[in-house]
Design a protein around this nucleic acid. Structure first.
Lengths: 230, 230
DNA sequence: ACAAAAGTGTTAGCAATACACCCATGC
DNA sequence: GCATGGGTGTATTGCTAACACTTTTGT
């Protein structure tokens, strides 16, 4: 079931239509970015939109997410969390569309080969404005960004935006990009290591032309709650 | 527009139906309780359900909330926050119903006179189970309770479950009820007062037959973010 | 040998915790 | 005068934040 299966008349039934939009965050070239696509409808052309689609009858939210994500971006199997539901009657000029929004995190290296770069744009968060982005999607992205920052402060959610193995500097860098400030290297390492959430792999990163750094991984498969990472 | 305006055939359109359910928390007789109503449909009779209804075409989520809350409980103008959206296809046997859930807080004294006690039940959280509660509403209530606890730890959301003026003991008691543990009276007072979020009214509570306690109020009208209340 | 990122400890200040007694009132 | 909840201070411990130099590698 694709969203194109739905003819415009579903927007004029006696009940609202339910859609899903997805805010995909990734760190690309040292910048926090969101995955967007060019708007293709008369009310979004010339602007960017979030990947999204209509939720089909009988389809669970998880199933919708997988279907819409893959159909729109080619990406599969990434970490997601429900963000919120936006339902103002005038947010889409086609009719009353209530949108259930998820946000997702992905390591850039894991999806750059899967996506079609002719239909997909990685927009830095600093360029997210209502001028460039259609509907209420700019508002949604900024709300998702808040939630991301919040969650990064007290869970290990960051693991989903990093490769399996990473250096402490890479880890610190992602925190710095998301929080928009720098941290002291010694205090950062002390704190992260004291939390016991990551472990050494014993491997060293030889890809830099500088002193090789120890690679770490998260000990736990799942996202864990913690008091005060940052 | 009432939910009874919708005939069963809306459940068999080509798209899911959107509903709203409301989890109203209050502290009643020293216990955290949730507002429920007896189930009236064939698939909920004999159990309790959350107050809820169908979201109408063209109606914003805020408008739906106000309408459904008043229609079902008689309560108006209380603090609310969106919780999450639940959309499994089999959560309602009538058809595919996606429910946008809000949770709300209210001071018991403010609504005991408004509600119809023949149709409304204050159920202690300890009695929330799938045996007593229909659909997936028990799961929703427990999820809302988690969120409440979480939010009480780092915001002044608690003000919405208390009367305008309250004693420090009352305040501490609500924290203890929600967190399910006791706090040291001296440390609690020191911390709360150091946060600067409440102020003395100068009035003393003479209703108890013991030493009268100083009454306090929150200085700020809105819910404020804080680091670590509890 | 030099440029560039990796790695490493100590101290000082603040916040959280544990803990016990006197006070004001109604009955 | 006694039972009940209201109100108060200090000492210890653990966490947070500030701060600079040495090491390893590639070129």
């Amino acid at each position: 079931m694709q969203s194109k299966d739905f003819t415009p008349d579903i927007f004029h039934l006696s009940i609202p239509v339910v859609a899903m939009d997805i805010v995909i965050f990734t760190v690309y070239r040292d910048t926090l970015c969101v995955v967007l696509m060019p708007g293709l409808r008369e009310n979004s052309v010339g602007k960017l939109v979030l990947p999204g689609g209509i939720i089909a009858h009988g389809e669970s939210l998880d199933t919708s997410f997988d279907r819409i994500l893959e159909a729109k971006t080619g990406i599969t199997g990434i970490y997601k969390e429900q963000l919120a539901t936006f339902g103002d009657a005038d947010r889409d000029t086609r009719g009353h569309v209530i949108s259930v929004v998820y946000y997702a995190l992905v390591d850039t290296n894991m999806f750059l080969d899967k996506i079609d770069m002719t239909k997909t744009i990685l927009l830095p968060l600093s360029e997210v404005t209502t001028e460039t982005i259609a509907y209420d999607h700019a508002k949604i992205i900024l709300y998702a960004r808040q939630r991301l920052e919040w969650k990064m402060g007290y869970t290990t959610i960051i693991k989903n935006i990093l490769p399996e193995c990473f250096t402490l500097s890479q880890l610190q860098h992602v925190y710095e990009v998301v929080f928009g400030k720098t941290f002291d290297k010694r205090n950062f390492r002390k704190k992260i290591l004291a939390l016991g959430i990551i472990e050494e792999t014993g491997i060293k990163n030889k890809s830099s032309s500088k002193r090789p750094a120890e690679l770490y991984r998260f000990s736990d498969k799942d996202v864990k709650m913690l008091a005060g990472i940052v």
